[in-house]
């Protein structure tokens, strides 16, 4: 594991507990770290991630903002410019569309436009993804939008351990970082080291080694891919599963090395399939020296070309699931594509 500081022990924590622990650790160690967002104070946040932090650090450092994403994000960017390290929570990452001006035109550009004289060390926390019955305006996976913007870093931790380590790495980063947290992951439990550590941004993790095909997955899709890989192993197919973790910067090296080894690539992500991170990764592989080692077309599994439906069956069908990953991986491994 990419742990840069010595930890003494691990405990089982949920993904949201791990995030809360990271925020508390950072706030204890650094008085410039503040939290901002709608209903993150007494209410504890839309997904109860900040929970009781307002009691521990007071309303001056855990600030409820008005229902204006553009205003709140603007204050966070401004605060970062003055030297504070704000963590701004969107209730749903969908609402970042209201704050695009601040994220894309201000936060991402200012260090460049000010000749490096200033930086914007803001962290945006982005609850994302479908599966909660929250319908079209509260279920999107827009991470690829931000992956397109130089000046931003975009990460998608998939485990409690990474959720903590990557949030601490984001806080230590001098530039704006967007953390996409899948809403279905908040309750997921896992071993989390105690104490302070960072997990590097821009480094993918090989979650399962394999030789027949490479599955690159992001966020919750990592877990579905791992489940599929387990079943594939029973069928004699050895799938390597790579947890992308960071989409900007992206870990070119790990992906290319894996494809060179397996010759087959399946990319699984929840965002709408077209113009998404799958397109970026497949193009990157086609342009790399792994091209000569491709032994099948590259396959992408992404979200449907439709808004996320409210109907639970349709909602499930709109994004990759274990069975769809299995089917695609089998077709790749059996040379049916």
């Amino acid at each position: 594991m990419d742990v840069t500081a010595q930890e003494t022990s691990t405990r089982t924590l949920s993904y949201s507990e791990a995030i809360r622990e990271a925020m508390a650790l950072a706030m204890e160690a650094d008085p410039t770290v503040i939290l901002m967002g709608e209903d993150i104070g007494v209410y504890g946040g839309a997904f109860q991630v900040t929970l009781d932090l307002v009691d521990r650090f007071g309303p001056d450092r855990v600030m409820d903002t008005p229902i204006s994403e553009l205003g709140g994000a603007g204050v966070a960017v401004g605060a970062a410019l003055t030297g504070l390290k704000p963590i701004f929570e969107f209730q749903f990452s969908d609402f970042a569309t209201l704050a695009m001006e601040q994220i894309v035109n201000q936060a991402a550009k200012l260090r460049y436009m000010l000749g490096g004289e200033a930086s914007v060390p803001v962290v945006f926390r982005m609850p994302a993804g479908s599966g909660t019955g929250a319908a079209a305006q509260h279920s999107q996976s827009l991470e690829a939008w931000f992956g397109h913007v130089p000046g931003l870093k975009v990460i998608q931790p998939s485990t409690p351990e990474d959720a903590k380590g990557m949030l601490l790495a984001a806080l230590a980063d001098p530039d704006p970082v967007l953390v996409f947290e899948h809403k279905l992951l908040y309750k997921m439990k896992g071993e989390v080291p105690a104490g302070y550590y960072t997990t590097p941004i821009g480094k993918a993790a090989v979650r399962r080694a394999g030789s027949d095909l490479t599955i690159v997955a992001a966020s919750i899709m990592v877990h579905r891919a791992l489940e599929a890989a387990e079943q594939l192993a029973g069928e004699g197919v050895s799938a390597e599963v790579i947890d992308l973790r960071s989409i900007r910067p992206i870990d070119h090296e790990t992906i290319v090395a894996s494809v060179r080894k397996t010759g087959r690539l399946l990319i699984v992500y929840e965002g709408v399939k077209s113009y998404g991170i799958g397109a970026e990764i497949s193009a990157m592989v086609a342009e790399s020296d792994a091209f000569d080692f491709l032994d099948a077309p590259i396959l992408r599994l992404g979200g449907a070309e439709a808004p996320i439906p409210y109907n639970p069956d349709l909602e499930r069908a709109a994004v990759p699931q274990v069975d769809t990953i299995l089917a695609a991986a089998r077709r790749l491994a059996r040379r049916e594509v």
Binding site: G263, D292, F293, L294, D295, A296, R335, E336, V337
Partner: peptide, 28 residues
């Protein structure tokens, strides 16, 4: 596939001597 072409090139093999087992006769 690129991998098949690469392997054939490396071995000095003419691809037209190879029977393809993939979809539409593609050589893997």
């Amino acid at each position: 596939t690129p991998a098949a072409r690469h392997a054939a090139r490396t071995a000095g093999l003419d691809l037209s001597d190879v029977a393809g087992s993939g979809p539409r006769g593609r050589i893997q």
